[in-house]
């Protein structure tokens, strides 16, 4: 039981991070119908920028304040980056065939990764402990403050985003743009501005996720974004891409499935499969879900886009 709860905590922590990244994928997809494959790299840039800002400040100022400064700077850098990516790589291709922006997305992702390698080198960077990480025991399992912080942050971000999209003027404009760009424009919505804003918000979330993931696992690296991006993209598809709640659900589910898969697959199969099938297990679940619900768990049937 104790092990089960511990695995659940592990899964929820990882899942919350997946969810934060998945939100970025799903927001862009919802509005543009485009998979922004460079999103994972934005997460990485966020983590490494925060680290670069934090390093000289450690010990000078109190830990949580340093962390906050790092996070804010990282978020600003990533917001600018997201804005530039959209402007340079996607906007000129908005009316091009679907394949073209997909290719530029991959291109941007390679450029960002190489750039990070040049700036920060190939080394794995240790991330200082800035946030409180005192361990607590619940039902015999260990949970620390940082893990709680990650889960709460993810949940609050989700709630905030829901409010933004469903309750505000900006949200209404976003929804309108997502329905039909040209009609929305006719109704007085500046579609370009809305799309830029979507990228900027998504990138800020990416910075947040990058900051949290590097703080929790204590390490940052120039190639950390690709695997994380891949998993988050999977999570977005699992939950129903284009749907905010779906991204959240998909992320948390994927994290929990991975943790429980790694923990129990060996026992379930009598030792035939071990924890090396952790990823296989997660993708197997994805396939099953997609067979029965092709648009994901919470995705609605998408009508043909104009």
């Amino acid at each position: 039981m104790e092990t089960f709860i511990q695995q659940l905590i592990n899964g929820l922590t990882l899942g919350s991070i997946y969810a934060l990244v998945a939100l970025g994928y799903t927001m862009v997809y919802g509005i543009l119908g485009l998979i922004n494959f460079a999103h994972g790299e934005v997460v990485m840039i966020g983590a490494l920028t925060a680290l670069a800002v934090v390093k000289p400040l450690v010990g000078v100022l109190p830990g949580p304040l340093v962390a906050l400064i790092g996070l804010v700077v990282a978020a600003l850098v990533c917001m600018v980056l997201g804005f530039i990516i959209e402007r340079v790589a996607y906007r000129p291709l908005r009316n091009a065939p679907r394949l073209a922006p997909l290719i530029t997305a991959i291109g941007v992702s390679i450029v960002l990764q190489q750039l990070a390698m040049i700036i920060w080198g190939r080394n794995y960077h240790p991330v200082p402990d800035l946030l409180p990480s005192a361990a607590h025991e619940i039902f015999g399992a260990q949970i620390n403050d940082l893990q709680i912080l990650i889960m709460v942050t993810a949940a609050l971000t989700m709630a905030g985003l829901m409010l933004l999209v469903n309750q505000t003027r900006l949200g209404r404009a976003m929804r309108a743009t997502s329905e039909n760009q040209s009609i929305a424009a006719l109704m007085g919505v500046d579609a370009n501005r809305i799309i830029s804003l979507t990228f900027v918000i998504g990138s800020a979330l990416a910075a947040l996720a990058g900051f949290l993931v590097s703080a929790n696992y204590g390490v940052a690296h120039y190639s950390m974004g690709s695997l994380l991006g891949m998993k988050a993209f999977t999570a977005a598809v699992l939950g129903g891409i284009g749907n905010l709640g779906g991204a959240m659900l998909g992320g948390v589910l994927l994290g929990v499935i991975e943790a429980l898969g790694a923990g129990y697959i060996g026992d379930l199969t009598g030792g035939v499969f071990g924890s090396n099938y952790q990823d296989v297990f997660a993708f197997f679940v994805l396939i099953i879900v997609l067979v029965f619900r092709p648009s994901g768990l919470m995705g609605e049937k998408v009508s043909e886009r104009a």
């Binding site: 092990t3 695995q7 592990n10 899964g11 993931v213 943790a259 924890s275 952790q278």
Partner: peptide
């Protein structure tokens, strides 16, 4: 216990939890 990860992984909490037991 015999567990596996890979050379890009950063999260070992699942396999370590299993090992802890």
């Amino acid at each position: 216990a015999e567990e596996h990860t890979d050379d890009k992984s950063f999260d070992f909490s699942a396999i370590l939890t299993k090992i802890k037991a």
